[in-house]
Write a protein that binds this DNA or RNA. Structure first.
Length: 228
DNA sequence: AAATTCCCCAACCGCGTGATC
DNA sequence: CGATCACGCGGTTGGGGAATT
């Protein structure tokens, strides 16, 4: 309270304590994500909705991938930033377990100074294709929350690689559960999941990314016996 | 060893958008 | 319809540790 009888900011700010984290986790586990503005009331937290959401999304979410950004992820960040610019949340959708904040920070600390204003012109075709992907992934995220699938993994990577095994996936989205290793064969394509990495083994060289994308689509259906 | 600068990143802020009243 | 609310996004800040002077 201020000395003038004015009610000062009633919300707590600054770093979260372990107790606050615990309260927030308990609340979300019980009631799910969303309705952040009422979390404080029900969870006994003196934090506003914005703060609660941010803490959950950027730090407490169980599906966050902790640890360093891998070279693989770094390449994705670089590529997508060249296309999207500072649209961090868009970029983050292609990096499961990474937050927009994390990617933004990583970019700023590692690349900002190095990148000279390059005039990369991305064709509308490419942008539209990517937008389609993003929308699809958003839809999957919604489905995930409904069917309790832990994560959506998507990797976007330049390809034209001739390495016959474990070709980095161009743009393939795979659903898997519980972070358990999976290996599947789908129409002659093998892919495997290890520690959140998706690898594709192609029996014969394939470089058509649109084909890869289509494979990603029907794998999703097959995995979960769901129809979009 | 102490002071200063640099660097990282968690958290905040303002704003835009869409839903609801 | 406008007002209000909730949410999410991108830019920015500031505390603290690491590196440098």
């Amino acid at each position: 309270m201020g000395s003038w009888g004015i009610i000062e900011e009633e919300w707590r700010k600054g770093p979260w304590t372990a107790e606050e984290d615990k309260l927030l986790i308990e609340y979300v586990n019980l009631h799910g994500e969303g309705r952040w503005s009422s979390v404080a009331r029900h969870a006994g937290l003196k934090r506003n909705g914005k703060s609660c959401r941010l803490r959950w999304v950027n730090y407490l979410r169980p599906d966050l991938k902790r640890g360093q950004i891998t070279p693989y992820e770094e390449r994705i960040i670089l590529e997508l930033h060249a296309i999207w610019g500072n649209r961090w949340s868009t970029i983050a959708r292609s990096l499961p377990g990474r937050t927009d904040n994390e990617i933004k920070n990583y970019w700023r600390t590692h690349f900002k100074k190095k990148v000279k204003k390059s005039s990369i012109v991305t064709s509308e075709k490419t942008k539209n294709r990517l937008l389609k992907r993003q929308q699809f992934q958003q839809q999957q995220q919604l489905l995930n929350s409904q069917i309790d699938v832990k994560r959506v993994v998507s990797f976007f990577e330049e390809s034209e690689t001739k390495v016959p095994t474990h070709v980095p996936i161009q743009d393939m989205t795979i659903l898997y559960q519980n972070n358990i290793f999976h290996e599947q064969e789908q129409g002659g394509f093998f892919y495997s999941m290890i520690n959140g990495f998706a690898n594709l083994s192609v029996p014969e060289a394939s470089s058509n990314e649109d084909i890869m994308w289509d494979i990603g689509l029907w794998n999703l259906d097959d995995f979960n016996n769901i129809s979009i």
